[in-house]
């Protein structure tokens, strides 16, 4: 799914870049320096090459890195592919649990779980959970958080 998502974003962005390049060459304003005109098509070209590489590599890489674990007291997530991020959020400090499914996610029957605490930095997101799992976990977490709840700040 990440692959598809990346692909869609890339295609849209590449299209925008192509449009810009075409616009610049077609209009050929006098104030645009000459080299810019000559190499205008390089930008979408380079981006296209990068996008293909990203589509091929990043999703599986990310899939390999991403881990999550929910224990009785703590939610642990590991995300990122080039830059990594390990996060621990205690369940007792959870304020809200969001369970979200975009249209693409529904297609693949996965869901995103977003756990928020009083601090913006303490908010954790788990992407690509199995939809049924996500549902179950979010309910469990909410119940558990209510149980453990102190002031949560």
């Amino acid at each position: 799914m990440w692959r598809l998502e990346t692909a869609i974003v890339s295609v849209v962005f590449a299209a925008v870049l192509c449009g810009a390049a075409w616009g610049v060459t077609a209009a050929a304003w006098s104030w645009v320096p000459d080299p810019v005109l000559r190499y205008a098509w390089w930008v979408p070209g380079l981006y296209g090459a990068y996008a293909v590489a990203e589509i091929a590599v990043a999703p599986s890489w990310r899939y390999r890195v991403h881990r999550w674990e929910v224990t009785a007291d703590v939610i642990y997530t590991r995300t990122g592919w080039l830059s990594r991020r390990w996060q621990l959020v205690p369940v007792s400090r959870i304020q809200t649990v969001d369970h979200k499914q975009g249209w693409l996610e529904r297609l693949f029957r996965v869901a995103t779980l977003k756990v928020q605490t009083a601090s913006h930095a303490g908010s954790s997101t788990i992407e690509g959970l199995d939809a049924a799992d996500a549902q179950r976990i979010s309910e469990e977490l909410a119940a558990r958080a209510a149980e453990l709840r102190d002031d949560a700040t």
Partner: peptide, 15 residues
């Protein structure tokens, strides 16, 4: 007890 979560971040260059 005010700490409500830990996050480690590591970029490619920090690795």
């Amino acid at each position: 007890d005010a700490i409500i979560g830990w996050t480690w971040r590591q970029t490619l260059f920090q690795r």
